[in-house]
């Protein structure tokens, strides 16, 4: 059975422009536990502002990196350091692709 209706959403924002995401929000968005995110902080994949986990604040860019790192660990069996390295190389590759696109090369 399927029910059809249309819902209008008003609470819409651009994630990457957010500056005040808590550890809890990150955990939910990454579908993971605090421990895994603490490892990513240790690894320098995500660098929060604030002195203690309770007051840490992350940006939307951190959320995105954390999600990818969590996926790579879950799906490919790499450890946090491996995920950090993969992420760094993927970001470099993305920058190079962006430069090629700006030069009109289709990638």
């Amino acid at each position: 059975m399927s029910v059809n209706y249309t819902h209008s959403v008003t609470d819409v924002l651009i994630l990457e422009e957010q500056q005040d995401l808590t550890l809890d929000i990150l955990c939910r968005a990454c579908s993971t536990e605090v421990e895994q995110l603490l490892e990513l902080v240790d690894e320098g994949v995500i660098v929060p502002t604030g002195d203690a986990p309770e007051v840490w604040r992350f940006t939307g860019v951190h959320l995105r990196r954390a999600r990818i790192a969590v996926h790579l660990q879950r799906d490919l069996g790499v450890n946090p350091a491996g995920a950090a390295l993969a992420l760094q190389l993927m970001e470099e590759r993305e920058e190079l692709r962006a430069r090629l696109r700006a030069l009109g090369v289709s990638v």
């Binding site: 059975m1 399927s2 029910v3 059809n4 209706y5 249309t6 819902h7 209008s8 959403v9 008003t10 609470d11 819409v12 924002l13 651009i14 994630l15 990457e16 422009e17 939307g60 959320l63 995105r64 993305e94």
Partner: peptide
């Protein structure tokens, strides 16, 4: 198990760029 068809409408935020994420709260 069944599948529910859920239609939503929203306004794309001005200034969004490729690679960014739009968050629809509560959806």
């Amino acid at each position: 198990m069944s599948v529910r068809d859920h239609k939503i409408e929203f306004v794309i935020p001005k200034g969004v760029r490729a690679g960014q994420h739009i968050r629809l709260a509560g959806q």
